[in-house]
Simulated scan of single mutants.
Amino acid sequence: MLIDAYNGKFNTWDYQWLFSQWFHDGLSVIPNVNFISNIGFGVKATNTTNSSETTPFANRSISGITFPLKHPANIIAHKKADTFTQKTRFDPSFLTRVKLKLHRAIKIKRK
């Protein structure tokens, strides 16, 4: 997939960003609350054309940022948080996978 992204076979930015993170031993910050609401889902979207009903990441409620910010004394990977994020964000449940496949199948038949 990284080679396909490099060769421009699909329009994406996240594979390049992820590769850079891996290459430079980078870490990402994922806040405990949502600070923005991604409205870029639906038929008019550039990349995420699936409707907001099929993804839990669309039109999420937001929270404010509390100031002053509290920075940690050390910056290290948090394995428990990484595992939680992997399971809840990147490993969809069986029901979610079925819904996405049905949505894609219906969309393909309509074209």
Rank of each mutant, 00 (worst) to 15 (best):
Asn11Lys: 14
Thr12Lys: 03
Trp13Lys: 09
Trp13Ala: 12
Asp14Ile: 06
Tyr15Cys: 06
Tyr15Asn: 08
Gln16Asp: 09
Trp17Glu: 07
Trp17Gly: 03
Trp17Tyr: 11
Leu18Met: 10
Phe19Gly: 08
Ser20Asp: 13
Ser20Phe: 12
Ser20Arg: 11
Gln21Phe: 04
Trp22Pro: 00
Trp22Phe: 12
Trp22Asn: 07
Trp22His: 05
Trp22Ala: 04
Phe23Gln: 14
Asp25Tyr: 09
Asp25Ile: 03
Asp25Gln: 15
Asp25Lys: 13
Gly26Glu: 11
Leu27Thr: 05
Ser28Leu: 15
Ser28Phe: 10
Ser28Gln: 11
Val29Ile: 15
Val29Tyr: 15
Val29Thr: 07
Ile30Cys: 11
Ile30Lys: 14
Ile30Glu: 08
Pro31Val: 06
Asn32Val: 09
Val33Lys: 13
Val33Ala: 10
Asn34His: 12
Ile36Asp: 12
Ile36Tyr: 08
Ser37Gly: 08
Ser37Met: 07
Asn38Arg: 05
Asn38Trp: 13
Asn38Asp: 15
Asn38Glu: 15
Gly40Gln: 13
Phe41Glu: 05
Gly42Asp: 09
Gly42Ala: 11
Val43Asn: 07
Val43Glu: 14
Val43Lys: 14
Val43Ala: 15
Lys44Tyr: 08
Ala45Gly: 04
Thr46Ala: 13
Thr46Cys: 07
Thr46Lys: 14
Asn47Cys: 08
Asn47Pro: 01
Thr48Gln: 04
Thr48Tyr: 02
Ser51Ile: 01
Ser52Gln: 02
Glu53Lys: 04
Glu53Ile: 00
Glu53Met: 00
Thr54Asp: 14
Thr54Cys: 10
Pro56Asp: 03
Pro56Arg: 05
Asn59Cys: 02
Asn59Asp: 04
Asn59Ser: 02
Asn59Phe: 05
Arg60Cys: 04
Arg60Ser: 01
Ser61Lys: 03
Ser61Val: 01
Ser61Ala: 08
Ile62Met: 10
Ile62Ser: 02
Ile62Tyr: 00
Ser63Asp: 02
Gly64Ala: 01
Gly64Met: 01
Gly64Ile: 01
Thr66Lys: 03
Phe67Val: 00
Phe67Gly: 00
Phe67Gln: 01
Pro68Gln: 01
Pro68Ser: 00
Leu69Pro: 02
Lys70Cys: 04
His71Thr: 10
His71Leu: 15
His71Asp: 03
Ala73Glu: 14
Asn74Tyr: 04
Ile75Pro: 03
Ile75Ala: 09
Ile76Asp: 12
Ala77Tyr: 09
Ala77Asn: 11
Ala77Gln: 13
Lys79Arg: 14
Ala81Gln: 09
Asp82Leu: 10
Thr83Gly: 07
Thr83Gln: 15
Thr83Pro: 02
Thr83Asp: 12
Phe84Thr: 11
Thr85Phe: 09
Thr85Glu: 07
Thr85Cys: 13
Gln86Arg: 12
Gln86Pro: 00
Lys87Thr: 10
Thr88Gln: 11
Thr88Trp: 06
Arg89Cys: 13
Arg89Asp: 05
Arg89Asn: 08
Asp91Ile: 10
Asp91Gln: 12
Asp91Gly: 01
Asp91Phe: 08
Pro92Lys: 11
Pro92Trp: 10
